[in-house]
């Protein structure tokens, strides 16, 4: 990140980054989407439990417990590559998705990386009448590599205990 960049300019640049990411996903350009991640990406989606308010520290399962997703670049690449096989049945015919991403908060880190938090609503429609609204937030760590932002870590928190969708075959 250029140190002289103002908070406003950084926010604007990252908001554009997330809007572009959303369009890539909704236009099914998954190979380009995959390029937005660093090679050491951790793409993590923990579970969320019902616990009492005084025990909220236990609500989100920690890294090391069973997660919904805990993927490295190779696993993400396999997920993308299989879509082209003609036999990835969960997504063939493919889902129709709409990613709305907002509520961006940006916190520059001492490492030169940036913490970026966003909220999302993702609508998924599949086959004839299946549809689902997925709500949640992303906690990202972004790294600037040769002038381009890359996602080095993504933690996705879904607003759900029992997931209501038949499967989670779309990217968030």
């Amino acid at each position: 990140m250029a140190p002289e960049m103002s908070a406003q300019a950084l926010w604007f640049e990252l908001m554009q980054f997330y809007i572009r990411e959303a369009w890539l996903l909704d236009e099914r350009k998954f190979t380009e989407w995959l390029d937005l991640f660093t090679d050491d990406i951790l793409y993590f989606m923990p579970r969320r439990k019902n616990v009492l308010r005084r025990e909220l520290h236990r609500e989100v399962t920690p890294l090391g417990d069973l997660a919904i997703l805990e993927e490295d670049k190779r696993y993400l690449a396999m997920r993308v590559a299989r879509l082209d096989s003609g036999m990835a049945w969960a997504e063939d015919p493919p889902s129709r998705t709409r990613h709305l991403v907002g509520n961006l908060e940006v916190t520059p880190l001492a490492t030169g990386e940036v913490k970026a938090r966003t909220a999302f609503l993702v609508y998924r429609s599949h086959l004839e009448t299946d549809s689902q609204l997925l709500s949640g937030c992303r906690d990202d760590v972004l790294r600037n590599i040769d002038g381009a932002w890359r996602i080095a870590r993504r933690t996705i928190l879904l607003d759900a205990n029992v997931l209501l969708d038949k499967n989670l075959s779309v990217f968030l």
């Binding site: 069973l66 919904i68 805990e70 696993y75 299989r82 990835a88 049945w89 038949k166 989670l168 075959s169």
Partner: peptide, 23 residues
């Protein structure tokens, strides 16, 4: 653990392709 959660579960690389058949 990582292999099991990648292959099975709602987002499982294998398991996600089962549901529409059973459905």
């Amino acid at each position: 653990r990582i292999g099991s959660q990648a292959n099975n579960g709602a987002a499982g690389l294998f398991e996600q392709d089962d549901v529409d058949n059973w459905r």
